[in-house]
Write a protein that binds this DNA or RNA. Structure first.
Lengths: 226, 226
DNA sequence: TGTACATCAGTGAACGCGCGTTCACTGATGTAC
DNA sequence: TGTACATCAGTGAACGCGCGTTCACTGATGTAC
């Protein structure tokens, strides 16, 4: 009885990559993370399944368990990467005026969400993530920390000291505003806000976001040295 | 051969409600909407399925199609109701000072999201809703309109006239801020913002939201009559 | 350099599950006369 | 008041699907001596 070798994941893998078929994948862990990220890009969070990730990595459905235990384990790893990508979008020249930096970060936050919506969706879906994934927690804190450091500059709070109540409130306001804006943009609520219906979401965003950021963090009035 | 009548939906329905079993439900449409809303309350959006809604309404899985065509049809109906509930949370005494009204509405928006997270999640999941559901669109516009009318008052733009650029920007800022805050609260990002870990989400919200709202819409400086 | 053995990583098949939709049907209700 | 008939609303069974997880297994790799 003929048995097609093309059905065997190792063979499929070999065919795809051009390398020799091997029982062991070699770097399945990375391949699964990569595959998951690809699914997020193409289909969003709802498109993800453990089996689909395994399929794309050229491996049987049982394999992922060896590396991640469960779907939440794999997704948490990807979410961690996503937070790192967000952090890159929040990187900003520390020399500039704080209000301007804040605006730049706001823009970076929204750009990240709009350019990588699948990742962005995932990052805040705590029902899909492991609550105790240390790396994920840390990566999230790091991203938030970048906003915080700009808020510190705005309020003149030194790095070691605790945030003042006003600064605390400002940080939360900043995060809320850009997070909310990003969500509304992804939910398609932006275009329906104004008459210019046909506009690209990119163009719409370019027109609508900067004034909003300027309203929240205007340049300070002319320096008053007494 | 014995056939348990308890398996028959009509009988199950009768048992539950105390009324006589009937082939026709009588108000299935409402019952399904009700059931869906109940699922949202208990399990969130992810807990919803057409079959589960049918089950709760005491009806076979095929029945909902007669009234809603598909899952999206039913969910859109529920989302419409949800927007109406949101509108109620945005109702505010039109006599008060605009900044205060804005804060009240902001508080109402967040309270709605936090008290009824399942509904709130649904309302912005356009992948689950019918794009062409007229009532849903209208209900969403109505809710947004309530924010808009306060922004008009803030900026002194009369009801008939188009929003100024500044007012437009302010409206979007308002919506973004409260929407983002609500999302972050539901994603559990609030508690992890400050040291007071054990705090109830309700208490945390009561402490953290008002200053944020005050920062965004402060009372105007003392009236300067020239 | 060779060999025995332990460990690891992925296989393959099956588990039981719930899902949305379809369709010929039938029981109940409403209407016309 | 009665009867024929059309319309409606829900049934019941089946469709094909994809899912996450389990588990005894086996092939490959690495290590000790």
């Amino acid at each position: 009885m003929y048995r097609s070798t093309a059905k065997r994941p190792a063979a499929a893998r070999a065919k795809k990559s051009g390398a020799a078929a091997s029982y062991h994948h070699g770097s399945l862990r990375e391949a699964l993370i990569q595959a998951t990220d690809e699914i997020l890009r193409e289909q969003g969070v709802e498109g993800f399944s453990l089996r689909e990730a395994a399929r794309r990595a050229g491996v049987t459905p049982g394999a992922p368990a060896h590396h991640f235990g469960s779907a939440a384990g794999l997704l948490s790893e990807v979410a961690m990467m996503a937070f790192e990508s967000l952090s890159e979008h929040l990187a900003v020249d520390e020399a500039g005026p704080p209000a301007q930096r804040m605006r730049q970060q706001g823009h970076g936050y929204v750009r990240f969400a709009v350019d990588q919506p699948g990742r962005f969706q995932l990052m805040f879906r705590k029902d899909l993530l492991s609550a105790d994934h240390a790396g994920l927690q840390a990566a999230g804190d790091r991203a938030l920390g970048q906003l915080e450091s700009t808020v510190r500059a705005l309020h003149g709070v030194a790095p070691g000291q605790p945030l003042s109540a006003a600064a605390q409130s400002d940080l939360l306001a900043a995060w809320s505003a850009v997070h909310g804006f990003a969500h509304l943009a992804l939910a398609g609520k932006l275009s329906h806000m104004h008459k210019d219906k046909g506009a690209t979401s990119a163009r719409l965003l370019a027109e609508v976001l900067p004034p909003l950021l300027m309203r929240l963090w205007p340049d300070p009035p002319q320096a008053q040295k007494p």
